[in-house]
């Protein structure tokens, strides 16, 4: 494991996010939609709470994650630069990890401006800090899972649109799982509940940091990145 390589790839990817208009468009769209829901709900409900941010963000992430990651690997496959990258002394998982971390950092930067909501609410009313920190932590974890899955989605094709659709379908499946549990037999339901992203998120958003949730997030990120690595390694035998 060479952290230096991961760092170089991370820096390069983060820079190229901001070299192209994609990052700006995605961030602006994300913030505008979130802001609209936040402000309209805030005055209707008249409660000093950031619940809207925490409820809406996973939903917006369904589009955000595939959109920012779709070109990460598929573009390199299409233009042939993947060949350059792989014939350098760099391991496949370093490539995948570096790219994933860049996307995660972009997501972090996108969430940062929403702290304005925290500041403005705490000025007008009283806001409990615990659930806010829990909520943001949870959002970072949910984001990590969605982004890792989408990096895998980008690795399987050289077409960005296909990458977006595949990633969206997987992420959407993970998101919807605990909403359809109601229709399933109870034995199956408890397993599926564990796989569902939202179930674990609601725990953390309440301020409960449970090791089971942590293991869930870490293992699903790890598994997705592992799959992406395998896809890159498989090319040798094509």
């Amino acid at each position: 494991m060479k952290f230096a390589n991961i760092k170089y790839i991370f820096q390069k990817e983060l820079r190229s996010f901001f070299n192209s208009p994609v990052a700006y468009i995605v961030i602006v769209v994300f913030l505008v939609i979130l802001g609209w829901f936040f402000t309209s709900n805030l005055f209707i409900a008249n409660i000093s709470s950031m619940r809207t941010v925490f409820e809406m963000t996973p939903f917006l992430l369904l589009f955000f994650a595939p959109a920012v990651t779709m070109r990460l690997i598929s573009e390199e496959k299409k233009s042939g630069t993947l060949e350059l990258l792989i014939t350098k002394p760099v391991r496949e998982y370093e490539i995948i990890t570096g790219k994933f971390l860049a996307a995660w950092a972009l997501y972090f930067l996108t969430l940062m401006p929403t702290l304005v909501y925290y500041i403005s609410i705490s000025v007008i009313g009283k806001l409990d800090l615990g659930p806010v920190i829990g909520g943001y932590l949870g959002l970072m974890f949910v984001g990590a899972v969605f982004l890792a899955v989408s990096v895998f989605g980008s690795s399987i094709t050289e077409n960005q649109v296909v990458a977006f659709i595949v990633s969206f379908l997987i992420v959407f499946g993970l998101f919807m799982l605990d909403k359809v549990l109601f229709y399933l037999p109870s034995t199956l339901a408890s397993t599926l509940e564990y796989i569902s992203v939202d179930y674990h998120f609601s725990n953390i958003a309440r301020g409960v940091i449970d090791s089971r949730d942590m293991i869930y997030y870490a293992s699903s990120v790890g598994f997705s990145l592992f799959l992406g690595t395998v896809v890159l390694q498989k090319r040798r035998w094509s």
Partner: peptide, 20 residues
Amino acid sequence: PLYLDMNVLEYLEYAAQLQG
């Protein structure tokens, strides 16, 4: 194949970093 959105020096630096 090249990264078209990078400038020449950035690209050379990236290549040098990854080559160790």
